[in-house]
Write a protein that binds this DNA or RNA. Sequence first.
DNA 1: GTCTATAATGGGATAGAC
DNA 2: GTCTATCCCATTATAGAC
Lengths: 245, 245
Amino acid sequence: MTDARQPPSASARRRPEAPSPPATAPAADTAAKAPTASRLLKEQGILTEAENHFAQFGFEGASLENIAAAIGISRHNLLYYFPNKEALYQRVLDDVLTQWLAGMEDLSHSDDPQQALRRYIRAKLRYSRERPNGAKVFTKEVIAGAPRYGKAIAARVGPLLKAEVRTFERWAREGRIARVNFTHLMFIIWSVTQAYAEQEAQFALLLGKPALTERDYGKAEELICRMVIKALEPDAALDNPPRAD
Amino acid sequence: MTDARQPPSASARRRPEAPSPPATAPAADTAAKAPTASRLLKEQGILTEAENHFAQFGFEGASLENIAAAIGISRHNLLYYFPNKEALYQRVLDDVLTQWLAGMEDLSHSDDPQQALRRYIRAKLRYSRERPNGAKVFTKEVIAGAPRYGKAIAARVGPLLKAEVRTFERWAREGRIARVNFTHLMFIIWSVTQAYAEQEAQFALLLGKPALTERDYGKAEELICRMVIKALEPDAALDNPPRAD
DNA sequence: GTCTATAATGGGATAGAC
DNA sequence: GTCTATCCCATTATAGAC
């Protein structure tokens, strides 16, 4: 953890504005809130830092003061870009969820169960590795009972999960996979893949390493895929009990 | 406490001889100062409430004021029983870890891989159901990078995990289970079983229920066991198990 | 053991400077 | 449009009085 936290110096931080305004189409949208590339850039910087702090301290524990200080701006400057703490938090979670749901849609559109699952697990693990703090913020929110983001989870994840389960059930009817409880299967896949983001510190600690390597993630992927795919291997012709959901 | 951190030297560990059990750390303070029964009772009440609050708000977010108020005492009365927030937090985590490690020791002492794993998964899921807040506090600590409890994890979990992996490797040598990465297998079992504590809110939300029922936990247990046991079925025809080393 | 005072922190609103 | 300064109020850790 780079803790090169520096006190917010009172020195004036004059950043020259973008010297050349986009002369191409300035009049396209007259007074419509121009996205202003520099603003988007700064927002992104705030969001990244906020993700780090929310991941480490949770919603209550994180402070706007520290988030702002970590990127060298004042708290009031931060509040200019996001109206309040809650809005900043919601944006962080929105972005994480958007990334995850993209991977889930891919899963539904495939037509080869094994390959689709392998791809999904691989993608989810890659997110965990590349953007662990997003997963951490999400899990902390869920642990607390999803008091601030529960509605968004129900609204955005619920429908996709149902579609996913329907896809699995179709595959099961076609005899391509065994009929297990597919909802719980998704819960389990989520849990495991996210654990490699959230608990990286613990896993690395127990492996005696400073951090997990690409090889470690490869081993995890191999084992997770093995577990999922073996569990979904059709039970041959032993018996095919139509299991109640 | 005891900084028994040892690098996982694969070289210095040649003999599979049964190692002397690495003296699990005695649970916190012993009977050094004869605590009265009423004091123990009050301590337990504080610990239970602290577990709830730390689970919901994290270390930074929880306040001694609220914990004390929830059980009808003053903050200063609480501070009489626990010197500060940090000590209270450590005690909560000590108690959780003690419970988990007991289940792990049982796993090592069994002689039937399948039965042992089923029992372990069932026990871990039962903990998740009966005492979800302990798991939540633990996971939140790990998510934050284990800044306050990392040493205890390394000292208490590490040795047991190694013993566990050695047991699995013996079973694999005997051809009773397939040879997978057993360390990651344990990581995965932990992640999944704990997820049913930490993420109960999310799972229930997505199932459209106010809370998970015993049936839900039963379904989870069935699927988790299936995944683990199928993944450990010896590959038989593919490559013959290495009978002797 | 309980109650109260103080200092520090943090979120938020408003006004105003570049 | 972007950023800073001042004020306000709630919360809380800590210390000390009773």
